Amino acid sequence: MRPDPVAEPQGPVAASPFSTEERDAVYKAIETRRDVRDQFLPDPLPDDLVGRLLGAAHAAPSVGFMQPWNFLLIRDRDVLQGAWEAFARANEEAAALFADERQALYRSLKLEGIRKAPLSICVTCDPDRAGPVVLGRTHNPRMDVYSTVCAVQNLWLAARAEGVGVGWVSIFHDRDVRALLGIPERVEIVAWLCLGYVSELYDQPELAAKGWRQRLPLEDLVFRDRWGNR
């Protein structure tokens, strides 16, 4: 068997800006992306579409080009039911942390993505992917996780452009999902994502629409040259 040819080194290419239409599409995806909690349709996502979303995630930047992510695709209803039960237990614990009206509002939020969405993706981070010493991670060991979150964001924006809703489930005990999916102890669970077509999206973040919290003014979050200097 002949070895695969070695790719020729590629040099820089022109860094030309996008056309107006292309630029506007990028900003539209960013501005209209939503965390979908309940509005999923049952229709399955085609394999080629899922492949494009995973390709977008895999194109994310990563420190030292270590590409620490893995994507566990979950469609099995028994596995999804197990994940929902893990979420439900943790969700009851979370609800108890809020008091009075805040707890009532929390309980009113519908969080049915795991059971309604046709596909879940568990995104993980393998800290050993590039060996013990990684360019760029030498002084901040969390850079591999930050890289994996970039992959999540890439997938989320690509999904918005494809008309696919995404919901990020974070309310569970790590040990429950790890046991359910057989994830090794050294591998970090970063995100459980629910994916599916949606018939509608909120015109603003759902938590803002339902009065949980409003978007902060950008000007309050920007400092100049030193912390606190506006």
Rank of each mutant, 00 (worst) to 15 (best):
M1W: 11
P3W: 00
V6M: 02
E8S: 15
Q10P: 01
Q10R: 14
A14Q: 05
A14K: 05
A15N: 15
F18I: 07
E22P: 02
V26I: 07
K28S: 10
E31V: 08
E31N: 15
T32C: 08
R34Y: 13
D35Y: 07
D35T: 05
Q39I: 01
P42S: 10
P42G: 06
L45F: 08
D48P: 00
R52I: 03
L53H: 00
A56Y: 10
A56R: 05
A56N: 00
A57D: 06
A57I: 06
S62P: 05
S62M: 05
F65Y: 09
M66Q: 14
W69V: 02
W69K: 05
N70E: 13
N70D: 10
L73N: 04
R75Y: 08
D76R: 04
D76Q: 07
D78F: 09
D78N: 13
G82T: 10
A83W: 04
W84R: 03
E85P: 10
E85V: 14
E85G: 07
F87V: 07
A88F: 14
A95S: 14
A95R: 04
F98V: 00
F98H: 07
A99E: 01
Y106R: 03
R107Y: 08
S108Y: 01
L109N: 03
L109H: 03
I114P: 03
A117L: 06
L119P: 02
L119M: 11
S120C: 14
I121Q: 09
I121V: 15
I121E: 12
T124Y: 06
D128A: 15
V133Q: 15
T138H: 15
H139A: 02
P141I: 06
P141V: 08
M143H: 11
M143V: 00
T148D: 06
T148A: 13
A151D: 12
V152N: 06
L157R: 07
R160E: 10
A161P: 00
E162A: 12
G163F: 13
G163K: 00
V166S: 00
H173P: 06
L180M: 12
L181F: 10
E185I: 04
R186C: 01
I189R: 04
A191N: 09
W192H: 07
L193T: 05
L195F: 11
Y197R: 13
V198C: 14
E200M: 06
Q204H: 11
P205F: 03
E206L: 12
A208G: 03
A209N: 01
G211W: 08
G211P: 06
W212R: 12
R213Y: 09
L216A: 11
P217E: 03
E219T: 12
V222E: 14
R224N: 06
D225T: 10
W227I: 06
G228Q: 09
N229A: 14
